[in-house]
């Protein structure tokens, strides 16, 4: 079988156009009808993917963002303590891609925590730490001049800042995935999740009596399972394997938590909002179990910030 020359020319042209589009990174928003363009591109993709479409199911894992976690712990009675944050002068120590990615997650969680508790000064400091690491990871577009200006303008507005942090998180995650750096994106998620749990447990001792906070910490077992699902989706990856090994004490601590919530219930109000609960919402978590989680997460987090 031969391919007509005109078809070869089209294929080469399409490849060049695609390459140019893919390499453009943060391409400017176009006013043209995106959906129309997408349809054209989809047809091209379809023509070449017809033979590769398999009826396998894709599986994704998602964990709550550090801002959601900090907000949840705050509502459960957690108090702010700036002394437990990763010191900002540590930022210059991180020299490898691995350490930078993990600690971008850590500083992102510290930034979210400071913002949730409306700590302006720390928010700015940790935003600068996150910017430095994102720039060094090559995601300079995440904290461009316009974004930094918006941060400064909104530093006293918790909700606006939260929205900006989320947008920035998206830009970073998207950039990394677009550039085939899924591992780096996962490391940022791990760093942020561990720091979020660390901040929630760091000030607890054997005299803890806030049952709501204890319950919320125990329930992080679910997020942990999703986090491990995300890590397990990587095969033969030394950096991810290293993280999985470090997670073992936390896996053991969560294994001692029994979250038998009973049947899930769902009721929908007149406004169409569904409340989802469980028939058994008390899981009898003990201080010893929570201290086990605290000790395990502290050990992991301290290793992270020492990389």
């Amino acid at each position: 079988m031969t391919i007509p020359k005109s078809n070869i020319a089209f294929l080469i042209f399409a490849s060049i156009i695609s390459l140019l589009t893919a390499c453009s990174g943060n391409e400017p928003e176009q006013d043209t009808e995106v959906q129309k363009t997408d349809t054209t591109v989809n047809k091209e993709i379809s023509a070449v993917t017809k033979v590769r479409i398999e009826k396998t199911q894709k599986i994704f894992y998602s964990v709550p963002s550090p801002a959601e976690t900090a907000d949840m712990f705050k509502k459960a009675g957690l108090e702010y303590n700036k002394d437990i944050l990763n010191p900002y002068n540590n930022v210059s120590k991180y020299s490898t891609q691995f350490a930078k990615a993990i600690n971008l997650g850590v500083y992102g969680a510290d930034l979210s925590y400071a913002n949730i508790f409306e700590q302006t000064q720390e928010s700015m400091l940790y935003m600068n730490c996150a910017k430095k690491l994102a720039d060094e990871l090559g995601v300079s577009g995440a904290f461009d001049a316009a974004t930094m200006e918006r941060f400064e303008e909104n530093v006293n507005n918790k909700d606006s800042l939260l929205s900006l942090i989320s947008d920035t998180y998206w830009v970073i995650d998207d950039y990394l995935k677009e550039n085939d750096q899924e591992e780096t994106a996962a490391l940022i998620i791990v760093g942020g999740w561990i720091e979020g749990l660390y901040l929630g447990t760091a000030m607890l001792d054997e005299n803890m009596d806030n049952t709501e906070l204890m319950q919320r910490i125990a329930e992080q077992k679910y997020s942990f399972e999703n986090l491990m699902g995300l890590l397990n989706s990587f095969e033969n990856n030394p950096n991810i394997d290293r993280i999985k090994e470090m997670m073992k004490p936390l896996e053991e601590a969560f294994a001692k938590i029994n979250l038998d919530a009973g049947e899930t219930t769902a009721t929908t109000n007149d406004e169409g909002v569904t409340t989802i609960g469980s028939t058994n919402e008390n899981t009898n978590v003990t201080a010893e179990q929570i201290l086990g989680i605290k000790n395990a997460v502290t050990q992991i987090r301290n290793q992270f910030i020492q990389f």
Binding site: A14, S18, A22, S24, E27, V41, N42, E44, V48, E178
Partner: peptide, 13 residues
């Protein structure tokens, strides 16, 4: 090549 290029393009789209 075309498959790869279009996959990247689609991600951006």
């Amino acid at each position: 090549t075309l498959s790869l290029m279009l996959a990247f393009s689609a991600q951006a789209q």
